[in-house]
């Protein structure tokens, strides 16, 4: 217990600023500011209510000779006031929170996409250039980075406290968010969604490096070629080219310029060709049929792994697309 007591003494002695987690992006600083506002607002309300209660308890204690004449049992003005004033405050909080939230999505110019796969119990990372790492994520300083998350098994959640961001990695779909780290160093990340026995061991380190160091690191970690090259191999391995990209066969839609475009569908609608759509088309090709084609593609569910799917998508992406490409969630994005 003495060790515990020592820790508590350290804690009391630590100035408040030093105990907040490091702030490594503008977004994180904005979240802290918002949090500070909420704490101040709550403190005012709690102290206000507690102050009123204490004052009434003392003044109107039984037996006191305080004036109790003409007690009120309702008041339209008061009751309307404590409906409308909270409503006003909450509108501000809602808008502020919504603005910060929407900033997570979108796809700023020059963004670098990194694929993150959760798996009981590790985080597997693949960079577009081909580098792979486990329970570690290297990103360049001052450059926007977009993480595309998926899971091999159960739901995980990729939580980066220094960036004040997290997003669930859900099997069967892609989720994504972007950030720009403005401070060099190493910062922890965690799995935040309970995922089994070793949930609390599913942690790792985010390393923010100077862009030139990052480029050098990528070269050093890159024996097998880029992710798109791996995708090209998988493309050949599964014989995708027999239908797609075969100028003689018109059985399948071409993939050049596909990524990020609007695809017309059989049912008259259209869909944005983003990572989620491409993934779905690999695993469940019958779900959305491209206009003018027959539903002949077999499913690759259980055949192609999540990692191979990611590399295939990177390959399709490398074939180009319309630019600038709209975002995955089509939510308005805030500049970093």
């Amino acid at each position: 217990m003495t060790e515990g007591m020592g820790k508590i003494m350290d804690f009391v002695a630590t100035p408040l600023g030093a105990i907040l987690p490091p702030v490594i992006s503008r977004h994180a600083a904005s979240v802290d500011l918002f949090f500070g506002f909420m704490v101040a607002l709550s403190a005012v309300l709690v102290l206000g209510i507690a102050g009123c209660i204490l004052y009434f308890l003392i003044k109107f204690r039984r037996g006191s000779d305080a004036d109790r004449s003409r007690p009120k049992h309702s008041s339209v003005v008061l009751e309307a006031a404590w409906i409308l004033i909270p409503l006003l405050i909450m509108t501000v909080i809602f808008l502020w929170g919504a603005r910060l939230y929407l900033g997570m999505f979108g796809k700023p110019a020059g963004v670098e996409t990194i694929y993150v796969t959760g798996k009981q119990w590790m985080w597997k990372i693949r960079h577009t250039q081909g580098a792979g790492e486990i329970n570690a994520l290297h990103v360049p300083l001052g450059k926007p980075v977009r993480l595309v998350l998926s899971s091999d098994d159960v739901i995980h959640s990729f939580f980066l406290p220094a960036l004040r961001l997290k997003r669930d990695a859900v099997p069967g779909r892609f989720t994504s968010f972007w950030f720009k780290a403005d401070r060099e160093g190493e910062f922890p990340f965690f799995c935040a969604q309970f995922c089994g026995v070793d949930h609390s061991g599913m942690t790792g380190k985010l390393t923010v490096m100077l862009p030139e160091d990052y480029a050098a690191w990528l070269r050093g970690e890159n024996p097998g070629g880029s992710l798109a090259q791996a995708g090209e191999k998988a493309f050949g391995k599964y014989g995708c080219g027999a239908c797609h990209g075969n100028p003689e066969a018109v059985r399948a839609p071409p993939l050049e310029g596909l990524f990020g475009s609007q695809v017309p569908l059989q049912d008259g609608g259209s869909v944005l060709a983003d990572e989620s759509y491409l993934r779905e088309s690999i695993y469940f090709p019958a779900k959305k049929i491209v206009a003018g084609y027959a539903p002949v593609m077999p499913t690759f569910a259980g055949v192609i792994s999540e990692e191979e799917a990611m590399s295939l998508i990177a390959y399709i992406r490398s074939m180009g697309g319309p630019s600038p490409s709209p975002s995955e969630n089509a939510a308005p994005g805030e500049s970093p």
Binding site: V31, F35, M38, Y101, K166
Partner: peptide, 13 residues
């Protein structure tokens, strides 16, 4: 705090 979207992203779970 938790209903506010941008803040929830950090403190959720």
């Amino acid at each position: 705090f938790l209903a506010a979207l941008g803040l929830d992203v950090h403190i959720h779970d």
